[in-house]
């Protein structure tokens, strides 16, 4: 098993490490990202992103390269192959686009007692996010 850290959680996934690549079965990649490998590319709902660099994105036996495939679907992935931990997040372009809409991104984070708190819990109120830290 291996761990992928996405924007909301740590997900245990099946990954095959071969030739310094983090390879996943297409259905495992789909479970992780919501994107399905089809003949026309990586698809979600009615959108398909073509795969221009097939050799980079897919292994000869049809496995999906996480780091390469992330770019196809507008995301960024960093993989620590040896330690079997990867992180998957938005691409810079996707983040920039989301910021341009000025729509406040939804989030759910634990409070001090471990209870999840969502931005949506405060719908129809003005909210001040106060970012702070101990450092």
């Amino acid at each position: 098993m291996a761990t992928v850290i996405n924007d909301t959680q740590h997900v245990e996934v099946q990954a095959r490490i071969a030739d310094d690549r983090w390879l996943m079965e297409p259905n495992a990649f789909e479970a992780l990202t919501g994107w399905t490998l089809k003949p026309e590319g990586m698809c979600r709902e009615d959108v398909c992103a073509p795969i221009y660099r097939k050799e980079a994105v897919l292994s000869p036996d049809g496995m999906v390269d996480l780091v390469e495939a992330a770019q196809v679907i507008g995301m960024t992935a960093v993989a620590d192959i040896a330690r079997r931990v990867a992180a998957l997040g938005a691409s810079a372009a996707a983040r920039a686009e989301s910021m341009t809409t000025l729509q406040a991104p939804a989030f759910t984070l634990p409070d001090m007692a471990g209870k999840p708190v969502s931005l949506h819990d405060f719908d129809r109120r003005k909210v001040l996010l106060l970012a702070w830290s101990s450092w």
Binding site: L109, V117, L119, F122, R125, K126, V127, L128, L129, L130, A131, W132, S133, S134, W135
Partner: peptide, 9 residues
């Protein structure tokens, strides 16, 4: 107004 203090930590 609701204040949510997010610890970036």
């Amino acid at each position: 107004l609701t204040i949510i203090a997010v610890a970036i930590d």
